[in-house]
Design a protein around this nucleic acid. Structure first.
Lengths: 173, 173
DNA sequence: CGATATTTGATATAGTCCATAACAATTATC
DNA sequence: GATAATTGTTATGGACTATATCAAATATCG
């Protein structure tokens, strides 16, 4: 669907400031009516997701971490010693697409691939010291600049309820 | 908006069905621990969105309508006579990317571009009779097969609260 | 044991979606 | 009337996703 990041074109035409209008001498270009669209789960879900990712990227600009990269670091920190297949599939990333993602993290010395001694086909994943440090800073940024905004916007109780409902949808829909 | 607590988190999956299992014996590959990931708004939002779109596509398989196409039909029905720029920007779609989308709908005789008499640069958008009929069927499918599942999963009150919170995020985050 | 099948990480590739620049036709502005 | 701005469009590149395939290593089974 739908919705890219260029939404806020403000939809207002600056050329409207000029006076000589034709049909309706009225002001603003009259925004469209969303109608049933504003009740469509998929529509509102997608738009919210874009906004949240957008904000996430801004908050992480200093660390240059995307949501996907952040999720990999979090998962590897919590589950050190797992191989690429396990980590990728847990995150819903296909193995082929996980290679470049890891190449990036490894080239920045945030994550390391280690040949497993048990199964020399697989690569064990661990965070480097730098990776742990960066992740720690990332967590702080997310907590203070990103997730905190949700509490301001919805309140603590509603924030938790929202996460719960989204989890339920993700797992059971 | 206040959400009832009927929705548990359940974020953690009961990985080990059998409690009395140990590492050594060849068992299931032991699911990874999501950890803080299950509390990350962006992560759970993205996964929920993917699930919802997936289900939407299945429900609409007989009509061959994507979420984006459906949103265009809905918006044009509600706002007939608007041009491409207006409709596209309302949906957060960039004009260049809107062209192919419209080409598709027009080739299927669901939507029509009409040269405006006021401004011969712009194309006025309207639904064809077939477009209106297809949209009507689409709405029914969405209501009965798609959105209804949300009510089963969350309950009516929570569904409304969810939509409200997502809208708030989409508009104010 | 050994032939075959499976798994893992990787490459190549194609499709989709999103974003920017540029253009012709038309309209607005001065 | 010359210049600027807008509309729809094309071309194009980047990011993300999906499938097929490969070599190396391991597992399976006769």
């Amino acid at each position: 669907m739908t919705v890219s990041k260029t939404v806020e074109k403000s939809a207002e035409k600056p050329a409207d400031a000029a006076k000589g209008r034709k049909d309706p001498p009225e002001g603003l270009p009259e925004a469209l009516q969303l109608g049933e669209l504003s009740e469509q789960l998929g529509y509102v879900l997608k738009r919210a997701q874009l906004k949240v990712f957008e904000n996430f990227l801004r908050c992480m600009a200093s660390l240059q971490l995307t949501p996907a990269q952040f999720s990999v670091l979090l998962l590897v920190e919590k589950n050190p010693g797992r191989n690429q297949t396990e980590v990728a599939s847990t995150l819903g990333i296909l193995r082929p697409n996980f290679v470049a993602l890891l190449d990036n993290l490894e080239s920045r010395d945030l994550c390391a691939r280690i040949r497993s001694t048990n199964d020399r086909r697989s690569h064990i994943l661990v965070l480097t010291d730098k990776g742990k440090a960066v992740l720690a800073r990332a967590k702080k940024l997310v907590a203070t600049k990103h997730e905190s905004r949700l509490n301001e916007l919805l309140g603590q109780a509603n924030r938790e309820a929202l996460i719960g409902m989204l989890s339920k949808i993700a797992n059971e829909f």
